[in-house]
């Protein structure tokens, strides 16, 4: 049942320009993208348009995707790592309608992957573009509420307060108590928010072969990590960065090394842990890997085996 590329079922909606945005707007977004790629990790202000989807629901990512997508592209959209979450479905439908492009759930077959909160488990390849939806592009916002001030802090490389915050966690808890939106230093210059991906995914950004583009629609900022760029999660020599681990493997595919979602199975405290990356999980099951609960009622409900 491995999903492959789905050609766009119906022709695109001719009432709108290809990929919804007009060409002048796309050019404006592309200019911002070029600047962002040239200055990795720097937040480029752009004339974010009002979109037919709500702010906070991916309008930044959608504008970036609309600016870079072409008729030959194959698009994958994930939310929480899954292709079938409601908003991912909604965004994929949007592009199928206004761009008429082929869509896929297979990570390797997608030329553009728009994501919210996750990086796929399978390593990305050269030529692929990962587009992140970003709610708050400013990693320093919780430390300094003024945009005028945080821009100065970036200009001066004044990242002391961020290290102090991490240090305070260590002094209090013995380790850094940030699990997502864990700040990174890009290309040795700008501290950047990786968007609210779990810190588990941070290492995948480092020296990635793929181009990583970030769009924050409501906050009107674009930033980028070009391929093969150093991305370092902030840490201390005596308290090196570490990622989450689980005590058990995925209950469906048995993967010992993927990010797991906790699923409540009853009201008696029963729970199971399954891959958040649904395509990765399906791929492993197709390859014969079996988790503890595959084939049980709970497993069937989650594994979409009934199809």
């Amino acid at each position: 049942m491995q999903k492959t590329v789905t050609p766009s079922g119906s022709p695109r909606d001719e009432a709108y320009n290809f990929a919804y945005l007009d060409e002048a707007t796309k050019r404006m977004v592309r200019r911002a993208l070029l600047k962002a790629v040239a200055v990795p990790g720097y937040q480029v202000p752009f004339g974010s348009r009002e979109m037919p989807l709500a702010r906070g629901w991916g309008t930044g990512g959608i504008q970036v995707t609309a600016a870079v997508i072409g008729p030959e592209d194959t698009l994958k959209v994930i939310d929480q790592g899954a292709d079938d979450t409601t908003n991912a479905v909604s965004i994929r439908r949007f592009f199928a309608r206004v761009a008429g492009v082929a869509t896929t759930e297979a990570t390797a077959e997608a030329s553009i992957i728009q994501t919210r909160h996750r990086i796929p488990e399978a390593p990305l390849e050269a030529g692929q573009i990962l587009v992140y939806q970003v709610p708050q592009p400013e990693p320093l916002r919780k430390l300094e509420s003024s945009e005028a001030e945080t821009r100065k802090m970036h200009a001066w490389g004044d990242y002391g307060p961020m290290y102090v915050r991490l240090y305070e966690d260590i002094a209090r808890f013995g380790h850094v108590a940030t699990t997502y939106s864990y700040p990174v230093l890009v290309n040795g210059r700008y501290v950047m928010s990786p968007s609210p991906i779990p810190k588990f995914d941070n290492p995948k950004m480092h020296m990635s072969a793929a181009l990583q583009l970030f769009g924050a629609g409501r906050e009107k900022r674009i930033y980028a990590i070009p391929p093969w760029t150093e991305v370092k999660s902030l840490d201390f020599e005596d308290h090196p960065f570490e990622v989450q681990k689980w005590d058990e493997p995925c209950a469906l595919c048995g993967a010992p090394d993927s990010y797991l979602d906790e699923v409540i199975t009853d009201d008696q405290g029963g729970r199971m842990f399954v891959c958040s990356d649904t395509h990765y999980c399906e791929g492993r099951r197709d390859a014969g890997h079996r988790g503890r609960l595959l084939g049980t009622d709970a497993g069937r409900a989650l594994a979409r085996d009934g199809e």
Binding site: G56, T85, T86, N87, R116, H117, I197, D261
Partner: peptide
């Protein structure tokens, strides 16, 4: 319109981040 979008986006799934918070 921006405020409503962002406040109401909390309806979207956040279980990946919440899993991190649970573990923490």
């Amino acid at each position: 319109v921006e405020a409503a979008g962002f406040v109401e986006h909390l309806k979207l799934p956040h279980y990946v981040d919440f899993q991190g918070e649970l573990e923490l």
